[in-house]
């Protein structure tokens, strides 16, 4: 297809125009294709606002400032701005200028009114509010701050002069204290000077002793380590012995418990009184027999042939 020159030129110019319009809208932060919504706010002080500055709602850019003109009748500044049509601006909404003019980052903040209120029509006017201009706040509070600062400085001045007086008066406590501290320091210093030789000899001795200990340890290293190994082995053996001793005592406990409860021969021996009774009566019998024997031995010995020999 042969494209005529007219068509080429026409297409190029139209494309350029479209790019131009869209580009300008893009950098103005306006929606590329949707239409925008124009509103006017009347400020007493525009605070450095210029066309092209961003308009924000809750910190989100929604449009930009179109014109900033001084109104001759009202003596105020009329600021016209465009915002995205999706933002619904109702009665009770207000605008404020914020940002720091000195840094060049001035913008307009829009605070939306309640959703159920009437919508402000296209080209309508909205109210203005106090901006959160940090720099402005600082400037407004500066006189107060300077006054306070000067008070603080005055106080400091008094403190400094009082201290000076205290120091310069020969009879002041402060001066006396300083003098006594100075005296103590001098004494301490003289003490240190006079005892310097002894102190240094003590330190030398301590150093010597430490050195000897070190040498001793280093020289007898193997012997010491063997000693420690032996000791450790002995302790291990002792541990084993103690364990078996514990076991023996446990067994003995068990045995005694059995004895107590009357189990086995020993138990019965310990716990049954009948044997004792029998033994007692047997001993009584033996006693009576011995008494009888003592009284009349013949009675018993006469029967014995051996005795007849005598």
């Amino acid at each position: 297809m042969n494209i005529s020159n007219e068509l080429k030129v026409g297409l190029t110019i139209i494309t350029a125009a479209v790019i131009f319009i869209l580009g300008v809208r893009y950098f103005q932060d306006l929606p590329l294709f949707a239409t925008t919504y124009e509103l006017t706010a009347e400020f007493k002080d525009a605070g450095g606002l210029i066309p092209g500055n961003l308009v924000r709602v809750h910190g989100v850019s929604v449009g930009s400032v179109e014109t900033v003109n001084i109104s001759q009748e009202s003596g105020k500044v009329d600021v016209t701005f465009h915002i995205d049509r999706k933002i619904i601006v109702t009665e009770g909404s207000y605008a404020s200028v914020s940002g720091i003019d000195a840094l060049g980052a001035v913008r307009m903040d829009l605070y939306l009114g309640p959703l159920d209120a009437a919508v402000i029509p296209e080209g309508g006017r909205i109210g203005v509010g106090e901006g959160n201009d940090l720099f402005g706040d600082l400037t407004a509070r500066a006189p107060d701050m300077i006054e306070k600062f000067s008070e603080v400085l005055n106080g400091l001045d008094i403190v400094v002069s009082e201290t000076g007086t205290l120091l310069s008066e020969p009879e002041s406590d402060f001066r006396k204290t300083l003098a006594s501290v100075k005296g103590s320091m001098a004494q301490l210093e003289s003490l240190l000077t006079s005892e310097r030789t002894r102190l240094s000899s003590i330190l030398l001795n301590v150093e010597d002793a430490t050195g000897s200990l070190k040498t001793l340890t280093a020289e007898n290293g193997p012997a010491v380590s063997k000693l420690i190994t032996d000791l450790s082995a002995t302790l291990t053996t002792l541990d084993v012995e103690l364990e078996s001793l514990g076991e023996a005592s446990r067994s003995l406990n068990e045995l005694l418990a059995k004895v107590n409860s009357g189990q086995g021969t020993l138990g019965m021996l310990v716990n049954d009184p009948s044997m004792y009774n029998k033994m007692d009566s047997t001993l009584d019998g033996i006693n009576a027999l011995l008494a009888d024997f003592k009284a009349s031995p013949g009675k018993y010995l006469g029967e014995m042939k051996l005795v007849d020999l005598f």
């Binding site: 210029i50 092209g52 930009s64 060049g104």
Partner: peptide, 18 residues
């Protein structure tokens, strides 16, 4: 980049360029 460009964009700039 775009944020910075928008912050300081003035509609007169492209008109002046034209």
């Amino acid at each position: 980049f775009v944020d910075g460009a928008r912050e300081y964009f003035q509609p007169f700039d492209p008109i002046f360029g034209m």
